Simulated assay, not measured.
Amino acid sequence: MARKDDPATVEYETKAKNLLKAELKRKGVTYAQLAEKLAVLGVHENERNLNNKISRGGFTAAFLIQCLEAIQATDVRL
C-alpha cells in the first residue's frame, strides 16, 4: 500500500481533487448542492465535510464516482 507522503500518491490525490473540482465547476455545483445530490444516493456528507475531504484530495475512488454520478458527469477527461 502506498504511503500518504509518497510523491506518486500525492500526485494522484492532487489529480483526483482537481478533476472533481473541475467537474463541479463545469456543472456549476456548489458543495452545498453536492451534499444534497449525494444524500439522494444515500451518501450523507455536509458542506463543510465535503470541502475538507475534497481539499485534502485523499478520498476513495468510490467517493469520486459517487460525486460524479450525483452531478451527472457522464464524460470525464483525464
Score class of each variant (00 low, 15 high):
Met1Pro: 08
Met1Val: 12
Ala2Lys: 10
Ala2Met: 14
Ala2Val: 12
Arg3Val: 01
Lys4Leu: 13
Lys4Asp: 09
Lys4Asn: 10
Lys4Ala: 12
Pro7Gly: 01
Thr9Tyr: 14
Thr9Arg: 13
Val10Trp: 02
Glu11Cys: 05
Glu11Arg: 12
Tyr12Glu: 07
Thr14Trp: 04
Lys15Gly: 05
Lys15Met: 12
Ala16Met: 05
Ala16Asn: 06
Lys17Asn: 06
Lys17Leu: 09
Asn18Leu: 14
Asn18Cys: 05
Leu19Gln: 10
Leu20Asp: 02
Leu20Trp: 06
Leu20Ile: 15
Ala22Ile: 00
Leu24Glu: 02
Lys25Gln: 12
Arg26Ser: 08
Lys27Ile: 02
Lys27Arg: 06
Lys27Glu: 07
Gly28Asn: 04
Val29Phe: 03
Thr30Trp: 04
Tyr31Met: 09
Tyr31Ser: 03
Tyr31Trp: 04
Ala32Pro: 00
Gln33Cys: 02
Leu34Ala: 06
Ala35Thr: 01
Glu36Ala: 05
Glu36Leu: 07
Gly42Thr: 01
Gly42Phe: 01
Val43Tyr: 10
Val43Pro: 00
His44Pro: 06
His44Ala: 11
His44Ser: 14
Glu45Lys: 13
Glu45Leu: 15
Asn46Phe: 00
Asn46Gln: 05
Asn46Met: 00
Arg48Ala: 13
Arg48Cys: 02
Asn51Met: 10
Asn51Cys: 09
Asn52Glu: 12
Asn52Met: 11
Lys53Asn: 04
Ile54Gln: 07
Ile54Ala: 03
Ile54Glu: 03
Ile54Phe: 04
Ile54His: 04
Ser55Arg: 12
Ser55Asn: 14
Arg56Trp: 01
Gly58Pro: 06
Gly58Ile: 10
Ala61Pro: 08
Ala62Phe: 10
Leu64Trp: 08
Leu64Asn: 04
Ile65Arg: 11
Gln66Lys: 15
Gln66Glu: 15
Gln66Asn: 15
Cys67His: 04
Glu69Asn: 13
Ala70Trp: 04
Ile71Tyr: 11
Ile71Ser: 12
Gln72Met: 08
Ala73Val: 10
Ala73Met: 00
Ala73Leu: 06
Ala73Asp: 05
Thr74Glu: 14
Thr74Ala: 07
Asp75Glu: 15
Asp75Pro: 01
Asp75Ala: 14
Asp75Thr: 15
Val76Arg: 03
Val76Gln: 05
Leu78Ser: 12
Leu78Arg: 10
